[in-house]
Simulated assay, not measured.
Amino acid sequence: MAENFIKTKDGVDIFYKDWGPKEAQPIMFHHGWPLSGDDWDAQMMFFVNKGFRVIAHDRRGHGRSTQVSDGHDMAHYAADAAAVAEALDLRNAVHVGHSTGGGEALAYVARFGQPQGRVAGLVMVAAVPPLMLKTESNPGGTPIEVFDDFRKQLASNRAQFFRDVAAGPFYGFNREGATVFPGVIDNWWRQGMNGSIKAHYEGIKAFSETDQTADLKAVMVPTLIMQGDDDQIVPYEDAAMLQARLVLNAVVKIYPGYPHGMLTTHADVLNADILEFIQS
Rank of each mutant, 00 (worst) to 15 (best):
N4G: 07
I6G: 03
K9D: 14
V12Q: 03
D13L: 12
D13I: 00
K17F: 01
K17Y: 10
E23A: 14
A24C: 04
I27F: 04
I27D: 04
M28I: 15
G32C: 09
G32I: 01
P34R: 08
S36V: 05
G37T: 09
W40I: 06
G51T: 06
G51N: 05
T66W: 00
Q67A: 14
S69N: 13
D73L: 01
A75P: 02
Y77H: 12
A81E: 02
A87H: 14
L88F: 06
A93Y: 07
V94K: 01
H95D: 13
H98R: 06
H98I: 06
S99A: 14
S99H: 11
T100R: 04
G102E: 09
G102M: 02
A105N: 04
A107K: 11
A107S: 15
R111N: 15
Q114A: 05
Q116E: 15
R118N: 01
A120W: 00
P130Y: 05
M132K: 08
L133H: 02
T135P: 07
S137G: 03
P139A: 08
P143D: 06
F147T: 02
K152V: 04
L154V: 10
N157S: 12
Q160S: 13
Q160G: 01
F162W: 05
F162V: 14
V165L: 15
A166G: 12
G168V: 01
F170K: 01
Y171M: 11
Y171P: 03
E176M: 12
V184A: 13
V184T: 14
Q191W: 13
N194F: 01
N194A: 15
I197N: 13
H200R: 00
G203V: 05
G203P: 05
I204M: 05
K205F: 12
D211S: 05
V219S: 04
V221C: 11
V221E: 04
P222C: 09
L224E: 05
D231S: 09
E237Y: 08
E237W: 10
M241S: 08
M241Q: 15
R245I: 04
R245C: 07
K253M: 13
I254L: 15
Y258R: 14
M262D: 08
L263V: 10
T264S: 12
T265N: 10
T265F: 11
A272P: 05
E276C: 08
F277Y: 04
I278D: 08
